[in-house]
Write a protein that binds this DNA or RNA. Structure first.
Lengths: 167, 167
DNA sequence: GAGCTGTTGTTGAACACTCAACCAACTGAG
DNA sequence: CTCAGTTGGTTGAGTGTTCAACAACAGCTC
């Protein structure tokens, strides 16, 4: 069992190039999407995502924890984000009837209207900056890669830690 | 010229799925890489990236603006980040001999040592969370996609704004 | 139902980033 | 040379996120 730390397996030049492209591209992408939403609709990307999730939920309401896990943000972050959205009237808080700890965030009409306004800006950006810039097959491949990453890092599935660790 | 706003071209279900996978996967990926570096080496990802760029530069020194553009961060952000790194002794500032406005950031020996320590943690994470979780061909495809995004959003190349805009 | 244990959501302080304003220094046209 | 315009870097205020601590509740065991 006295197995020493395995030597680091560095990235191949091709892998490193791809990794750095991703780093640079995603940095610029998020920057730009964020800026577009901020300038045109006074929303951050995180706020926009919350509005989207709420709009898709039954009755346009979701519990804080569900909201948090659906976008993989910390509960604390969701609390702060929702507080801002509540302050600007886009979201309302309500008590959860079945669990007295629970808090339900619901999209107001004003929030829905804002989302309808902002969506074209956002989708347009996603298309112009990402989806439509390269080969469609490549984009789908990227989707598969990140789906794998997402499930690899799914906090629910702690087994990933054990099964596939270093070695 | 009274052409009205073109109707938004929404994402297809497949595109939307890929986009959301990317959003979720990259969120978790950056979170985890950040946490690993923070916990094991008390560095943020941004700080780590700076150290990497410096370590690769001739004489391990780079001007602030070059540093900024190589990682696509704002000059202000680079100022703040380098200030922190300087405060912890990993980087030193020096005046630029050829341009009296210029400031040169250089990696200290301590900074280099810290980077050598941290690199295995980081590369290991990149492999386990991203590079090795899916099909290698898919990963290279993702690299191409984000390279395209990066150049599409390259601040140097303002022509992109004109050539490929909405229409 | 008393006592654990884990979950839910909030809080406030510390930290990181953005943005606008600013000064100093370079550049090029006249 | 001079002036306008641009670039390089910093600053501080405002904003957003993290982190640890906490209170309230749920679910379980005995």
């Amino acid at each position: 069992m006295a197995r020493t730390q395995a030597p680091t397996q560095w990235l191949t030049p091709a892998q490193q190039h791809a990794w750095r492209s991703f780093l640079l591209g995603s940095t610029r992408l998020f920057d730009q999407l964020e800026r577009d939403l901020r300038v045109e609709h006074d929303l951050s990307l995180a706020e926009y995502e919350m509005l989207v999730r709420l709009s898709e939920a039954p009755d346009r309401r979701l519990r804080m924890a569900e909201l948090a896990s659906s976008v993989s943000h910390s509960r604390s972050r969701v609390t702060h984000t929702i507080s801002r959205l509540e302050a600007s009237g886009l979201v309302a808080r309500a008590a959860c009837p079945t669990d007295r700890r629970g808090v339900i965030a619901s999209l107001t009409d004003e929030g829905f209207a804002r989302l309808v306004d902002a969506a074209p800006t956002h989708v347009d950006g996603v298309r112009r900056y990402l989806v439509d810039v390269g080969d469609p097959g490549d984009f789908e491949a990227a989707g598969r890669v990140f789906a794998a990453t997402a499930s690899r890092l799914d906090p629910q599935c702690a087994s990933a830690e054990l099964g596939v660790s270093r070695g």
